[in-house]
Write a protein that binds this DNA or RNA. Structure first.
Length: 905
RNA sequence: GCCCGCGUGGUGGAAUGGUAGACACAGGAGACUUAAAAUCUCCAGGCCCUCGGGCCGUGCCGGUUCGAGUCCGGCCGCGGGCACCA
């Protein structure tokens, strides 16, 4: 072999790792353990570049930790339940199970050539009965400990598909598949008591030092702790059982600005009135119709219905306020009722104007006047306000302190009490779907809801199901639900709901520590391997997945499935960016624009045409496109097919340009839309398998790490991949040249070895801090140094072997090949990580820039250990300094050893 | 509406308060070659220049400092999260 052949060496070294079994993780008390985990993939069909980036980062960490003497656990599995499998079954008639396992096969086969340091013996899919059976066991233990319960809940119900929809599946109030008007229905569902842990989940965020601040903040906002006052308005002429309305407010300091009471259409009082009055019933029905999506909420008009009921203000019994049922009040936050304060709240203000209610200002602004009735209405920020008129003659300060003062004031007057509320609600886990983990309970006519016995687990999904009718196939299965009551033995019926797939991913990290255990976890294994030392995944899971996992870790501890130390399961979290790519949009023939040629007018017309609804964009795959830079330095793209007809003839820029111009005039040019998330519909995707076949896995790995910081998006470009491959070829070539060289030792050796130690230091720091792009830049620089070095063979060989070690986390196959080529012992993967010699990091002479008044004016070369006073002398003697001083004495001289000299005039 | 983050060459991006632009892409010049590919060498923030160098420059304005891309305050722009949450 005389040149770098990725295909050859990658197969060879993967085989070698396999044979050596070095990625098998076993407990070992003699070495520190390290558990690195990437968020496991959903088996959608094929892997994409985002996967490659994610797993490569995890692999860099894993391999680095192996080299630094850790006992590494690096597992992989499949988040395999979920709707796409059912959708595929509905679309093409197959079975979700077959679809899923076939995808897993394909993706595993695509993943293995990446050369990841994965312990494949621990692989599982969440749809394996061995896994979901243990999940059912967990559920039963949670049930036992009161961590899961049943209650009625309002859900989005698709009457055609006969299923519950998630909020994201409701588009403009219609089901995303059926297009039917979505109804709000009350169903009995299972819930995890995550809200009981709100305070704990919030407080513990402070302990997660190695999580991105952004993620912690997002969780904090999601949990949404608020402090306020809960109190009641007494009803005048109340109904039986309803003599008061409880409200919650975070702004008790604005209590004197109250002008109405609003209650949710789902409030018990509203429901009571609904039963008695057709008008109320009609209003409530209409109000409940509104979708729960962001857009629906944005557009929705604030509507109210005056119930005719009146309440008394707690601080002034003569003050009567009307009670409205309003469509913007949520039943599941606070008490489902509010007091409206139009002077200090945008929504209440809109509402008050619409229904002609009083708008009362309770603030005394610090400066200037505040017109509460101005149009447009500008709510006054409390920081700019001094006092609030809480009660005539008694004023309190506003702001955060003001809220506490107001609460104290109200409590002292016997009006309500201060309470803390959370936005976080219990986690509804019931799904009316087939392809999920069956909820292991039985409904018995005499015993009610009865937990299944553990010895009957797993409750397996039936295989003979059909997807040709809407609804849940488990529901209409002829025999599956039929069972006997575990308590009384009478005929009973199984629960046909399955679990939310977020449940599956909430504990898989724990299962990886003992994937074949007969219980959900094995405490000895969990004690050894937990926690995950480094977790890596997309920011899109910042809230739900990570919060649910944190809840599960706590619940599993309570139920004895995880040790105390695993209360926070992920010690460190890294959220990586996406892989993006330009989009190539093929413009259509522009006949109907009526404009030919170019110029601003044509451009405007063309823009209009581009945006017209009738025109559907057509996209081209990157491999069907040739990019080039025209003579004006602008990036252009051409259909590859147009160029390939010219095969055999050399193609220059001029030819590409004229071809492009012809296309442009025909109105069929390829437009380049810059960098966007890879998406099949836009065709801006690059298949990892194609890249691996073309360049090898190391090139793909190197490129996804090299161009951008890991937390940011990286743009995949053909040129970039090409360049990465060129560099790896160069390293390989360099190594083989060194292997054959016989250059004798010489004075250059020392210089090269010093550079090598600096490189070790920089790369080690880079990997330690997730600065993979910086580490790679450093490796480029060192390769350049090595290539130009005149050092002897021995020194160059040492340098190249070290280069191989430093590259091995990123490009492990190439590294092994270089290592063995240069006589490295055993496998580079298990060779101890090189350590920089501190002596070698210190240069004998340093170049110090000299600043005059903070501006760089000259530089001097001095011995590194020269005392400051000597450096000062040399600097003062420098021509530039002498000239600037012009005989005068400097006011001050700052010498930063090894860094800089600043002379202040 | 509330909360958070980010603005550096043509591009991606480097830079513990200490020489801004490392490294790479795209670009330019050259060597080798019949030619191409491959490879190698060199140039490259902007503006001036007497070829020594000079001036400007990290979104804008101000501040702290001997020294600011970095710290502080205020704008402008972009991006993200949450959201009829009372």
């Amino acid at each position: 072999m005389s040149r770098y052949s990725a295909a050859e060496i990658e197969a060879k070294w993967q085989q070698a790792w396999d044979t050596a079994g070095i990625f098998r993780a076993r407990r070992d008390a003699t070495r520190p353990k390290y558990y690195v985990l990437e968020m496991f993939p959903y088996p959608s069909g094929r892997i994409h570049m985002g996967h490659v980036r994610n797993y490569t980062m995890g692999d860099v960490v894993a391999r680095y930790k192996i080299a630094t003497g850790h006992n590494v656990l690096h597992p992989m599995g499949w988040d395999a339940f979920g709707m796409p499998a059912e959708n595929a079954a509905m679309a093409s008639g197959g079975h979700p199970k077959d679809w899923t396992y076939a995808n897993i096969e394909t993706m595993r086969a695509q993943m293995k050539p990446l050369g990841l340091s994965i312990d494949w013996s621990r692989e599982f899919a969440t749809c394996d009965p061995e896994y979901y059976g243990q999940q059912q066991a967990l559920f039963l233990d949670f049930l036992d400990h009161g961590l899961v319960y049943r209650k009625n809940a309002v859900v989005n119900w698709d009457p055609v598909d006969m299923t519950v929809l998630a909020n994201e599946q409701v588009i403009d109030g219609k089901g995303w598949r059926s297009g039917a008007d979505v109804e709000r229905r009350e169903l009995t569902q299972w819930f995890f008591r995550i809200s009981d842990f709100a305070e704990e989940l919030l407080g513990a965020l402070d302990t997660l030092d190695n999580w991105p601040a952004k993620v912690r903040l997002m969780q904090e906002n999601w949990i949404g702790k608020s402090r306020g006052l809960q109190f009641a308005f007494g009803l005048i002429d109340g109904l039986e059982g309803h003599d008061r309305i409880e409200v919650y407010t975070t702004r008790p300091d604005t209590l004197m600005g109250a002008s109405f009471i609003g209650i949710s259409p789902d409030h018990p009082l509203a429901k009571r009135l609904e039963a008695e009055c057709a008008d109320v019933a009609a209003f409530c029905a209409e109000a409940r119709k509104g979708g729960t999506t962001a857009e629906a909420i944005e557009k929705a008009e604030k509507l109210g219905f005056d119930t005719g009921l009146r309440v008394r203000h707690p601080f002034d019994t003569a003050w009567e306020l009307p009670v409205y049922i309003a469509n913007f009040i949520l039943m599941d936050y606070g008490t489902g009722a509010i007091f409206g304060c139009p002077g200090h709240d945008q929504r209440d203000h809109d509402f008050a104007r619409k229904y002609d209610l009083p708008i009362i200002d309770t603030f005394l602004p610090l400066e200037g006047a505040h017109d509460i009735h101005a149009t447009p209405y500008v709510p006054l920020k409390s920081e700019r306000v001094r006092y609030t008129r809480l009660v005539a003659g008694e004023e309190i300060q506003t702001g955060e302190a003001g809220v506490e003062t107001a609460i104290d004031f109200c409590e002292a007057k016997g009006v309500g009490q201060g309470v803390t509320k959370f936005r976080l609600r219990d986690w509804g886990l019931s799904r009316q779907r087939y392809w999920g983990c069956p909820i292991p309970v039985v409904h018995c006519d005499t015993c009610g809801v009865v937990p299944e016995r553990k010895e009957n687990l797993p409750i397996r999904l039936p295989e003979d199901v059909s997807f040709d009718a809407p609804g849940n196939p488990l529901d209409r299965h002829p025999t599956w639900a039929a069972c006997t009551c575990p308590r009384c033995g009478a005929p009973a019926r199984r629960e046909t709901d399955t679990m939310d797939t977020f449940v599956d991913s909430s504990w898989y990290y724990a299962r990886f520590t003992a994937p074949h255990a007969a219980t959900p976890t094995d405490m000895a294994e969990a004690e050894y391997w937990m926690n995950v030392d480094q977790y890596i995944g997309g920011i899109e899971h910042a809230i739900l997945h990570l919060l649910y996992s944190r809840f599960f870790a706590r619940a599993m501890q309570i139920t004895g499935h995880l040790p105390a130390k695993a209360i926070e399961p992920f010690d460190a979290l890294f959220t990586q960016g996406m892989v993006t790519h330009s989009i190539y949009e093929l413009t259509h023939n522009q006949v109907d624009t009526g404009i030919a040629g170019s110029g601003p007018e044509a451009d405007t017309k063309f823009e209009e045409y581009r945006r017209s609804e009738t025109r559907l964009p057509t996209y081209l795959f990157p491999e069907d496109v040739i990019e080039f830079t025209d003579s004006f330095g602008e990036k252009k793209a051409l259909k590859r097919s147009l160029v390939e007809t010219n095969e055999g003839i050399s193609i220059n820029t001029q030819m590409l340009e004229s071809a492009w111009l012809r296309e442009f005039e025909a109105g069929t040019e390829v437009r380049i839309i810059p960098s966007a998330k890879m998406s099949k519909s836009k065709k801006n995707v690059v298949d990892p398998s194609t890249i691996i076949a073309q360049y090898g896995a190391d090139t793909a790995r190197w490129f996804v790490l090299s161009d951008s910081p890991p937390e940011r998006d990286v743009e995949w470009t053909a040129a970039g991949a090409e360049a990465a491959h060129r560099h790896l070829s160069r390293v390989w070539r360099l190594a083989s040249e060194i292997a054959q060289s016989d250059a004798p030792a010489n004075p250059e050796d020392e210089t090269l070895l010093r550079e090598m130690h600096k490189c070790i230091d920089d790369v080690t720091k880079g990997i330690d801090s997730f600065g993979f792009n910086a580490a790679i830049a450093r490796l480029y620089a060192f390769t350049n140094t090595l290539a130009k070095s005149q050092a002897g063979q021995a020194a160059k060989s040492t340098a190249a072997r070290t280069l191989a070690q430093l590259m091995s986390p990123m490009t492990p196959h190439l590294a092994e090949d270089v290592w063995s080529m240069l006589g490295g012992e055993n496998l580079v993967t298990i060779a101890p990580w090189p350590v920089a010699d501190p002596q070698m990091l210190i240069d004998e002479t340093v170049i110090l820039p000299i600043q005059i008044n903070g501006k760089r004016r000259a530089e001097i070369s001095v011995p590194a250990d020269l005392p400051e006073s000597e450096v000062e002398k040399i600097a003062l003697a420098h021509d530039a300094v002498v000239k600037a001083l012009d005989g005068a004495q400097p006011r001050k001289i700052i010498v930063v050893p090894g860094r800089i000299v600043n002379v202040v005039l």
